[in-house]
Design a protein around this nucleic acid. Structure first.
Lengths: 213, 213
DNA sequence: TTGTAATTTAAGCGATTGATTGAATCATGT
DNA sequence: ACATGATTCAATCAATCGCTTAAATTACAA
């Protein structure tokens, strides 16, 4: 029963897939790459998941759905009683669940970030069906909260800025180590909390854009 | 001699590859996808380019190198005589060459943006060798210019903010139409100049982050 | 026109892809 | 011990992958 006792074939596949998809992306990994890493038979994937595509869906849903639930939960907390949430609080509620989730996953920090970044950027955005309803609900809730916090900002600009925020997160998650290599380490190794603060600072400034907080 | 007269096999391949790579990404397109679209023989790719990988390199270099040259040129203009360039000017010099290039390419606007975005995000950053020296020169020049414009900003934070700026651009380029679909058109259809201004506004605010301009 | 090089073509190479099969093995309850 | 269902296995499928070959075709200079 204990998960640490021995991992089932299904979990071994999931874990191997997570690592390989994070490292090489969704298009570049074959079933045999995964089953060799997981040290299981090729047929096990189709037995346990039905197809390669459904395995990928499972990998994505494993973290995306809990993260979006956590986002809605945090947003609900800061907006309780109908009070208007602060822009910074909203951005924090949007980004922080990634950091909470990384401690729960069995993936190394960087691996987890890259995997999440790929869920956003790879496969030109076709997330699994099981993730879409919650995702849209989350997107709508954050759009509304942000519109309430910035009532003067036109809705189209607001949406594009949310889009930019998504871009900052995705690019940072995927290419963090690329930046480290490119700059010979000058960019430092900020811990997760610092990384989060910097991203929120950047996007917060971009959202309020000169106006007073 | 005239390019409009008839396109050579080599150019037909390049054009087909540009469209398909923009639409589906670098990992998901096969040689036969390209040659079928271009209406040429499969062997033509290896005859004219040497390999699939070198064809992809050629597709990327076709626009990336001129864009980076244009960036350095614009940055040189605004920093001439040793004067310190403004943050907004630097961001403009960084982003604008994309817009200048789209009018020169034979690709539709959205296609071109998606292709450029994929050059940044796909293949976990392994750009062709022929593009790297100029890219690094450009990156260093913009880092220095930005450091001069924001002397109080620690170098590591500055680099991360440049990284965020890259993310805003890449994500916007690739997923512009995704946003349009997701929001049922509420996000509008801003023209290129507006799109550029909005991105620069967002990143500019993120860079100066509350400090006076 | 003839000779030579450049280009295009159809056919096929070995390797790998996702998926399937039926038999072997394992686990579990009676 | 036996039966039953769940799981794993080696073997193999057709399809597609990037790439190569040798012959046919074209372009062009002498």
């Amino acid at each position: 029963m204990s998960s640490s006792q021995k991992s089932s074939t299904k979990e071994k596949i999931l874990i191997a897939a997570e690592h390989l998809l994070a490292e090489h992306g969704f298009e570049a990994v074959s079933l045999r790459d995964i089953t060799n890493t997981a040290e299981v038979n090729v047929a096990a994937v189709n037995y346990h998941f039905g197809s390669k595509e459904k395995l990928f869906d499972a990998v994505q849903c494993r973290y995306i759905n809990p993260i979006n639930e956590h986002r809605l939960e945090l947003l609900g907390d800061i907006a309780e009683g109908g009070k208007t949430a602060d822009v910074r609080e909203i951005l924090d509620a949007f980004m922080r669940p990634f950091l909470s989730m990384v401690t729960q996953s069995e993936l190394k920090e960087q691996m987890f970030f890259k995997l999440m970044g790929r869920c956003i950027s790879d496969k030109h955005g076709d997330l699994p069906e099981e993730a879409l309803p919650l995702l849209e609900k989350m997107a709508q809730a954050f759009t509304e909260a942000m519109a309430k916090a910035l009532p003067e900002l036109p809705i189209d600009q607001l949406m594009w800025r949310l889009h930019y925020t998504f871009g900052v997160m995705a690019h940072t998650l995927i290419h963090a180590d690329t930046l480290r290599k490119l700059t010979n380490g000058v960019c430092g190794e900020p811990d997760m909390e610092t990384q989060l603060k910097w991203m929120i600072d950047f996007c917060h400034a971009g959202f309020i854009n000169g106006k007073s907080v």
